[in-house]
Amino acid sequence: MKKPVIDAQNVDLTFQTNDGPVHALKNVNLEINKGDFVSFIGPSGCGKTTFLRCIAGLETPTGGRLTVNGMTPEEARKSRAYGYVFQAAGLYPWRTIRGNIQLPLEIMGFPKSEWKGHIDRVLDLVDLRGFGKKFPWQLSGGMQQRASIARALAFDADILLMDEPFGALDEIVRDKLNEELLKLWAATQKTIGFVTHSIPEAVYLSTKIVVMSPRPGRITDVIESTLPPDRPLDIRDSEEFIKIAHRVREGLRAGHDA
């Protein structure tokens, strides 16, 4: 039997704050298989970021069981299981694009002789060939975000976790990056966890859509996409697409009323 890459069982997380406990995640059950593209969607404050951070071992659940590649998230982090992309590109302004992508390789102790190969490969993947010697401020916001994806891909983790990576970009750039992300996913066969606020984005990208609702943060619906793996942008006008989008919207509304 195939084991899920990410396995969450009854995951609970309560933050102790000065204003009392905040129940950020309640009873989260989710299995993510290898090669899945999973989107998390839900209103602000429903725990999407928190759950992603739990998977990344940046936050520790206060209850339940969470494994990544059969290990604890902490161990998975140490074994370089995932790359994490934040909402802001967060490139180092004092390093060139190549230098930025090189950062995880330096820290993880990759041999120097391999750096160039890794960097060239991921620059190709995110279509930034020829921009390696530029500094971040010389690139547009969309290109910076692509560079930060390249940085997360550089050390060949199997899992890519992305927290609203395109949230700050305009729709046209976003469409283009979504298309590229799908290509990248097809080319690399990575497992992707993707947080978004946009229903079309979630439906267009995902094989699995996780709908969440707040107070306390929990999963209200998990939708397996029936769209084919090959998705041109105009698939968004198809009946199938609209049907799934409708179901997502229903799920969001149900969570809201509850």
Partner: peptide
Amino acid sequence: QMQLDLLRTYGARQSDVFWKLRLPSSM
């Protein structure tokens, strides 16, 4: 915090955080 978290996801040591992030940021 985001910059620090990013380095944590790489499993960076304290010395890496200092030399590669804190010191250049302070320049």
